[in-house]
Design a protein around this nucleic acid. Sequence first.
RNA 1: GCCCGGGUGGUGGAACGGCAGACACGUCGGUCUCAAAAACCGAUGCCGAAAGGUGUGCGGGUUCAAAUCCCGCCCCGGGCACCA
Length: 855
Amino acid sequence: MKPYNPHEIEPRLQQAWAEHDLYKVDETSTKPKKYVLEMFPYPSGDIHMGHVSNYTYGDVVARYSRMQGFNVLHPMGWDAFGLPAENAAIKHHSHPAVWTYQNIDTQMASFKRMGFSYDWDRTVMTCNPDYYRWGQWIFLKMWERGLVERRNSPVNWCPDCATVLANEQVIEGRCWRCNSEVEKRDLTQWYLKITDYAQELLDDLDQLKGWPERVKQQQANWIGRSEGAEVDFELVPKEGEAASADPELITVFTTRADTLFGCSFFVLAPEYEGLHDLVAGTEYGKPVMELVEAAKKISALERAQGDHEKHGVFTGRYVINPINGERVPIWVADYVIADYGTGAVMAVPCGDQRDFEFARKYDLPIIPIILSEDDPLYPELKDQEARVVTSVDWPEAYAAEGYLVQSGPYTGMLGGKHSPGEEAVVKTLEETGRGRRSVQFRLRDWLISRQRYWGNPIPAVHCEHCGVVPVPEEQLPVMLPEDIDLAAGETLATHEAFVNTTCPVCGKPAKRETDTMDTFTCSSWYYMRYTDPHNDKLPFDPAKANAWMPVDQYIGGIEHAILHLLYSRFFTKVLRDEGMLDFDEPFENLLCQGMVLDSHGEVMSKSKGNVVSPEEMIAGYGADAVRAAMLFMGPPDKEKLWNEDGLAGMYKFLCRIWRQVYDLVGDAGEETLYQEGATPEQAQASLDTLVRERHRVVGKVVDDFARNNFNTAIAAIMELSNAIGDYVRRCSAAERQASEFSREFDIEVAEVLVKLMAPIAPHWADELWQTALGHTDSVHTQAWPTYDLDKAKADEVELAVQVNGKVKARITVAADAQNDVIEASAREAVATDLDGKDVKKVVVVPGRLVNIVAK
RNA sequence: GCCCGGGUGGUGGAACGGCAGACACGUCGGUCUCAAAAACCGAUGCCGAAAGGUGUGCGGGUUCAAAUCCCGCCCCGGGCACCA
């Protein structure tokens, strides 16, 4: 027997696999396709345990799929643009590319050392001009389609990263990358109109049967669809000004048009456009503008922390409530968000907690117009159409469904979101032309411009005469200049050779756009590039993308539940509308792996000094043990607490089954596990068990792999190993080769064991396949073992016998015994427990138990 | 506040409504050894000497039978959040 030495076999086999192009995609294959993909890494340094777990899951799926007869695409690449590279360049007075490519080399070596089965000929690095030119190309297509916009608005600015951020990149008022507090700034920026796809992005979540519910829920939350109505309020002219024939309107969005009778004031956001004109020249101008200034100072962080006091001032102006003609005062308050709905709200303090709090603070009337039946006011107001109670003093607003009162013709109707009352009011508004159905989304357009160097340049030119114009397709890529000294404070904007160009429309001197695109644009389509990575005419050949896509199994971290996964869905839909793709969704099945934490459940970080190094683990036990230990730790979507004891245990298991394989093939030499002393009956029983386990376990592993339950698959293989252990211990080699204990069977079991382990411990398995089992090819090109569940069945089964639900005895019966036979046997077994009792009912569950109900 | 997950031995975790704790780690005992390690065997939810009792966050319910289904709570994790 050759001893198990991972440090010798792993590098040797990795080299052999590479030499034989074992994992290279065969484009001519007629096998069904399977696209297995893990989210590509950011080259931030060497790999960490999170990478090990993520890419191990993917590798198991890929290897298993190959053995199952699929033509597997399993590529790897790097999301290589981004700020950390720039920071490193500044620190080391070098270029971001140097740091990036060094890290890519390191990570690639680690991935190879883990034995991951990638087709390395398809590697994509997003900072390579061959790749990013197509990102620019897609941007131009979006521009043509009207999905690119430049506009001025308040944006999130990270002072430390010195760039703007997308909404999705602000976590509780802080930068997703550096955790700095985000500021609001008014800037002109580039946007992708993802909101054009809001409805489809929401609707198509239903198609994603293979996605975790929580991810779909998070996306639905983020998109935030809300159904309601727009209502037009007429602006009352300033005091002393004449009424116009065509009065100005201020429109609000509301989901509760049914509460219009309870509107006792009206609120504008401090950033409301036209606010200045409303108060200009009046005594209210000064306090209003003071509030506007104060509101600017409230940081996003403070807003995110919730529970702030509301501030507001009266504008001196009024609007007319379109449902009852009442004059309503207009206030400005910092609790109204400028960029949701219309930036104006009708305030109904009796039904909305925010309006309620504001009304209390500023002593505005709280008109009861919707009540629950058990409200003490209800009997009095039940039939009141006209207003008899002008204000109430409740402890809180009544936001639930209830009955409308003091609401003119709607009195008595049921009110609430999507209620008959709401529908009736909206119908009236529509008929009178004062309102209409409307849907609002929480989702904002995607701000993609970044004021950074290490990213994909936005292909646009600013011309004095022609305005902002796209760079023509044939001039792509707009290359990032390589001669830049970031440490000396140079930026794209100061790089004259880059900035100065000519206008592609009029040919006169013009300036290049100097912002780059958010790195998330690069990662929004890389999975399509893998299907055709060397194409120099298009981002990808639609035929190839349509053949490979959608990704059958996508694997990555939950932190991308919104960001990357939402953006990728958006890009896919745009490219479909562009005619390049014939599917709606890029990722058929999604596995979100849980974080790998230290043994105390803490996040691993350099500052805590608790980082576990994959390299050290491999150096200690080999890549196969690391892979298997990670898989065995628990379900992939749960958090994993890494502990080295589990790794040591897995190494022992690999050693044990290594010996078992040699024992089964009869080449164990002195190291045979046989122990004398078993009776012929025991030997026979262990053989019978092994025959059944061989089939049962293969079936179980197939089921478990189908559900990504790698931990229970390994547990099942351990059970097979336990059965092998009993067998080789009790039956001597001579016995096993005698007629009934056939050598063929021993070899079959050994081969089954090796194949089951092949996706999990690929080096271990391939070495045994070739050395112990004497094959000349690789186990990774073999077919997955077959199984027959009929052969997994025992002749006899043990059943539990319960009396009134409690186990009192056990009986052994023939597997195919009839229920009456089982019942008789069961009654006999618990005769003493039934003594003096009346049997009311007997439930026989074949193969499991018998429950006798007796009194 | 709203929306998702999740609470099972000392630990990681298993359980189509059908014997709770598979499979491991750990611990204890044994074999081997001068000894130790390794390897192998056995025990191991809790209480109890045993018989037996008890047990899946808490309280109810449905069922012959509930970790699993239903109702009401508690706790932990995540997402959204002044979104009208």
